[in-house]
Simulated scan of single mutants.
Amino acid sequence: MSGDNRRFGFWNPAPTRHSALEDAQGIATGSMVAALGLTLIGSAGLVASGVAGVAFILHYLTGYSFGLYYIVLNMPFYALSLSRLGKAFTIKTFLAICLTSLITEIQPRYLKIETLDPVWAALLAGVLLGFGLLALYRHRASLGGLGILAVYLQDRFGIRAGLVQLGFDLVVLAAAFAVAAPYIVLCSVIGAIVLNLFLTINHRADRYIAM
């Protein structure tokens, strides 16, 4: 039994490095799951957390593409990522952002949502974004913006990534009152809490040591 555990990676005390193929599937899967969460947010008229929340606010105000705003708003954070977290992390994060933005833009063509309760949308989106980000974090990538900063602060100072994002998210969600009704903002807050609690509980370097 112990031999099977070691072979499949359970209770393995030594860190193992992901292969390029494993990174590719992790980034693709994480981006797809996160894009589904963002689609639910957009369909319910909610506001996401972090840079995605700013992108949604601009999208609602101007009508221009969410995906385009999301890519552009993340650009300033690549310098921090490159200097602090390395070339590999930056490249994988850039690919994850582009893929997530692309899927979010084209997904409404293939997924039609006729009825969606804002509270349920917030709960589902929070969980889906949590799973998507967790997959990306475990392959040394993120969805950019505050995610880059959160991962850096966790690696450098040991501050939980979920707690870092929660603080910034409260600021972004406060700005959401400019484009959404209080009830919608409240639902958005619920989604942000679910997302960040999910990451705080599950994203721990002492529990997952593959690289």
Rank of each mutant, 00 (worst) to 15 (best):
T93P: 07
R109S: 03
L82S: 06
F77V: 14
F89N: 02
G130F: 08
A79V: 15
G130C: 06
T115N: 10
A122M: 10
L82C: 09
Y64V: 09
S101F: 05
R109D: 06
Y70P: 01
N74I: 13
I91H: 04
I91G: 01
F77G: 12
L123T: 00
A122T: 04
P118A: 12
K92L: 07
L82Q: 10
K87P: 03
T104V: 03
R109K: 09
C98P: 00
W120A: 00
Y64C: 11
P108E: 14
W120Q: 03
P108W: 15
R84G: 06
P108C: 04
A96P: 02
A121M: 10
C98I: 03
T100M: 10
A122C: 05
L102W: 14
I106N: 12
L73H: 08
E105D: 11
L129Y: 07
G86D: 02
T115E: 11
L116G: 00
E105K: 04
G86R: 04
S65D: 14
T115L: 05
L124S: 00
L123D: 00
T115M: 12
T100H: 02
C98T: 01
D117Q: 04
I91Y: 11
S101A: 13
G63E: 15
P76D: 13
G130Y: 03
L73F: 15
S65F: 14
F89M: 11
A88S: 00
A125P: 01
L95H: 08
A122K: 12
T93D: 14
W120V: 00
G86E: 01
G63H: 15
R109Y: 05
W120I: 01
T104G: 00
S101D: 02
L128M: 13
P108G: 06
S81G: 14
F77I: 12
G67A: 06
D117N: 11
Y110D: 13
L82H: 12
A122Y: 07
Q107H: 03
A88Q: 03
